[in-house]
Measured scan of single mutants.
Amino acid sequence: EVHFESHGEEQAMRVVKMLKKRNLTVEVKVENNKWIITAK
């Protein structure tokens, strides 16, 4: 499981795309203006 924190939507979306290319399940949450990305 991979956790990634991002402060910007643009950066977060880039990471999500990259993770999805690896056929991982990606969950995105926004907490306290931080984008929290979890990949399994």
Rank of each mutant, 00 (worst) to 15 (best):
E27T: 14
K34T: 09
F4W: 11
R14P: 00
N32Y: 07
M18H: 07
W35M: 02
V16A: 06
V16G: 01
I36F: 07
E27F: 11
H3R: 14
H3V: 14
N33R: 03
E31P: 00
K34D: 01
I37E: 00
V2H: 13
E9F: 15
E5R: 06
S6T: 14
Q11A: 12
F4H: 03
K34A: 03
E10Q: 10
A39C: 14
V26G: 00
R22Y: 15
V30H: 11
A39G: 08
K21P: 01
M18K: 07
E1V: 13
K29P: 00
M13P: 01
V16R: 01
W35E: 01
K40G: 05
W35F: 07
E1G: 10
M13K: 07
E27K: 07
K34C: 09
I36Y: 08
E31V: 13
F4I: 10
V16Y: 07
E1W: 14
K21Y: 08
I37Q: 00
E5P: 03
V30T: 05
E1I: 13
M13Y: 06
E5K: 06
G8Y: 15
K40Q: 10
I36L: 06
I37R: 00
I36P: 00
M18G: 04
V30P: 01
Q11L: 13
S6R: 13
T38G: 01
V30G: 01
K17I: 15
W35R: 00
M18W: 14
G8W: 14
H7T: 11
H3N: 06
G8L: 14
K20M: 11
L19F: 05
R14T: 06
N32W: 05
F4E: 03
A39R: 01
H7V: 10
V26K: 00
S6Y: 15
V2P: 03
V26T: 02
V30M: 11
M13H: 05
T38P: 00
W35L: 04
H7G: 06
A39M: 08
K17E: 14
T25W: 13
K29Q: 07
E9S: 06
S6P: 04
V16I: 14
E5Q: 07
S6I: 15
R14F: 09
E27A: 07
A12T: 05
Q11R: 07
R22M: 15
V28C: 05
Q11N: 08
E1F: 13
H3K: 12
R14A: 11
M18D: 05
N23V: 05
K20P: 01
W35A: 01
M13I: 08
Q11S: 09
F4L: 08
G8D: 15
K40R: 12
M13L: 09
E1R: 10
R14S: 07
K40D: 04
K34H: 06
K29E: 03
G8H: 15
L19K: 02
N33H: 07
V15A: 03
I36W: 03
M18F: 11
V2C: 15
K34F: 08
Q11T: 08
Q11I: 10
H7K: 09
V16E: 02
H3W: 13
E31Y: 09
K40S: 12
K29F: 09
A39Q: 02
E27M: 11
E31H: 10
H3P: 03
T38A: 02
A12Q: 02
K20V: 10
V16N: 02
H7Q: 10
T25V: 12
K17G: 08
I37F: 01
L19I: 02
V15R: 02
K29T: 10
R22S: 10
V30D: 01
N23W: 14
A12E: 01
V15H: 03
R22A: 12
K34W: 04
H3T: 12
V26S: 00
R14H: 09
E31S: 06
T38I: 13
E27V: 12
I36Q: 03
V28S: 01
S6F: 15
E27Y: 11
R14K: 10
W35V: 05
E9Q: 11
T38D: 04
F4D: 03
I36E: 02
T38L: 05
M13C: 14
I37D: 00
N33T: 04
M18V: 07
S6E: 12
K17T: 09
L19P: 01
K29R: 13
